[in-house]
């Protein structure tokens, strides 16, 4: 049996995305390859979510090409997405993960073990039979993370994974992401929390008004930003 096609690298080539007459995203070329997490930052409305959704294949670009492992229109087999407000299926916590496992045709006999592993990974051991929609916001966020990992992705895109969490819960999500990244999963996350970006990211993309203002290694970005916008954004100035 042939190994499944890889979804990496994820390449954007002269992408434009519009809503009506308004340009939401207009970027040149961007390549996301294996390695340390990539953080996408920028003010509200900069186009972070749109960039991630395009990268997942949930949106079709108005112009340009997106390829996964050099294939266009590749079905989302080896990639997963964590929405800013994840929707729990009306099932138990275990049922939610089981659904994702089934979606990638995990043999039935292995699912129980994997569910236990994934719940342990996100700190929800013992929550198997709890109705997912009755969990707290933070618990749902972690369960959704476990659910997206159940698809055994090469690349995991996360839209503001810590935005609605208190600092302790945010830290536990960051810890899980670090562990996942160390296992070789490519992580791309959007965040407006510079701390998260600083702690996790290997490289940083600053978006402003739908354009990539700066894309550099994390160390460079935070210590010697190349652009005025990056410097001002880090200083807490409003980017308008």
């Amino acid at each position: 049996m042939r190994a499944p096609d890889s979804d990496l690298p994820l390449q954007f080539d002269r992408i434009e995305y519009r809503a009506g007459n308004r340009s939401i995203l207009d970027i040149g070329s961007l390549t996301i390859s294996n390695g340390a997490p990539t953080a996408v930052i920028g003010p509200n409305g900069a186009g972070k979510t749109t960039l991630l959704r395009l990268g997942m294949g949930l949106l079709e670009p108005g112009a340009g090409r997106i390829t996964w492992g050099r294939r266009q229109h590749a079905a989302p087999v080896r990639r997963a997405f964590l929405f800013q407000r994840p929707v729990m299926l009306m099932r138990s916590a275990a049922g939610n993960i089981d659904y994702a496992l089934a979606s990638v045709k995990t043999p039935r006999g292995e699912r129980k073990r994997k569910i236990a592993e994934l719940l342990a990974l996100v700190g929800l051991s013992g929550f198997e039979d709890r109705p997912a929609r009755r969990l707290s916001g933070g618990e749902q966020q972690r369960l959704a993370l476990a659910r997206s990992l159940a698809r055994d992705p090469e690349i995991l895109l996360l839209d503001e994974p810590t935005a609605s969490l208190d600092p302790a819960a945010a830290k536990s999500v960051e810890d899980v992401l670090r562990a996942v990244a160390n296992r070789g999963v490519k992580i791309v996350l959007s965040t407006h929390d510079l701390g998260t970006a600083r702690r996790l990211a290997g490289d940083v993309i600053l978006l402003h008004r739908g354009r990539i203002v700066e894309h550099s290694a994390s160390e460079t970005f935070f210590k010697q930003p190349k652009t005025e916008e990056a410097r001002r954004f880090q200083a807490g100035d409003l980017l308008i």
Partner: peptide, 15 residues
């Protein structure tokens, strides 16, 4: 509610 999640899990129409 489910549309995006199911799309992200590559679930087809029948599923």
């Amino acid at each position: 509610q489910y549309r995006d999640e199911l799309a992200a899990m590559n679930v087809g129409t029948a599923g």
